[in-house]
């Protein structure tokens, strides 16, 4: 599903440049539940942004769903994002003047789906995350866990190939965190590829595979020991 080969990325800082990703090789297959770990500055957010087509890589190869990603203009990137990718952010990034239902329906609007159908699909996904009765509430009227559930529903609404979650539990307490992870697990069990970025060990252990980054290179890539988890 996602294949990275010798991926490099650097950011210009004044006259120098900061080399963030130094030749990553990574292959995430369809239906995997992967976490990418690393301390801040390890390059994990940059990696997620590149995978999420929110940012571009400098050199190397990135193949998403069999399609080589290069020379993307903003418009193409927007279409691909809408088609293949669902995002879950640490700070939820819900639009504060739209209701839960409208937030979930927004990516469908950009996909060009009609108004009535949008409502139906959005409601379906809200039901899936257990927030059907909160559909008409504004984000400010929802708890942190509920907001993240709305965000997950929104990420799923366009039926993407991959769900990318950037520190999805970063702003939540432990209990809520694990219920959110359980929700992601449920989604994964239904066949969705899920990539989670985190720096919390116990969150990473809720996934099937942990990729560890340090200073822009992968230092380990291993399956989670199911028995230890149980």
């Amino acid at each position: 599903m996602i294949r990275l080969h010798n991926l490099h990325k650097s950011y210009p800082i004044g006259h120098d440049s900061l080399h963030v990703l130094k030749g990553l090789d990574l292959h995430i297959k369809e239906g995997e539940f992967v976490s990418i770990m690393g301390s801040s500055g390890s390059g994990k957010s940059t990696l997620l942004n590149i995978i999420g087509l929110l940012d571009t890589h400098d050199t190397g190869e990135y193949i998403l769903n069999g399609q080589t990603i290069e020379h993307l203009n903003e418009k193409k990137a927007a279409v691909l994002r809408n088609k293949f990718l669902g995002f879950v952010f640490q700070s939820f990034n819900l639009i504060n003047y739209k209701t839960a239902l409208e937030n979930v329906a927004l990516p469908l609007y950009y996909k060009g789906i009609g108004r009535k159908e949008r409502q139906v699909i959005a409601m379906e996904y809200l039901e899936k995350v257990g927030l059907k009765e909160r559909a008409s509430h504004l984000p400010s009227e929802l708890s942190g866990g509920e907001k993240q559930r709305v965000a997950i529903a929104r990420a799923l609404a366009t039926n993407p190939k991959v769900v990318l979650a950037d520190e999805p539990t970063g702003a939540l307490d432990t209990v809520t965190s694990h219920s959110v992870m359980e929700l992601l697990r449920t989604i994964n069990n239904e066949g969705m590829t899920v990539v989670v970025i985190t720096h919390e060990e116990d969150i990473a252990e809720d996934t099937d595979r942990i990729v560890r980054l340090r200073d822009g290179v992968i230092i380990s890539d291993e399956k989670v020991n199911k028995k230890a988890k149980a």
């Binding site: 999420g52 418009k75 927007a78 994002r81 990034n93 639009i95 950009y110 996909k111």
Partner: peptide
């Protein structure tokens, strides 16, 4: 700005 960023992440094209 942030709202526009969200819209773009969700698939809004620059023209839209």
């Amino acid at each position: 700005t942030k709202e526009l960023g969200i819209r773009k992440a969700l698939g809004a094209t620059p023209q839209s």
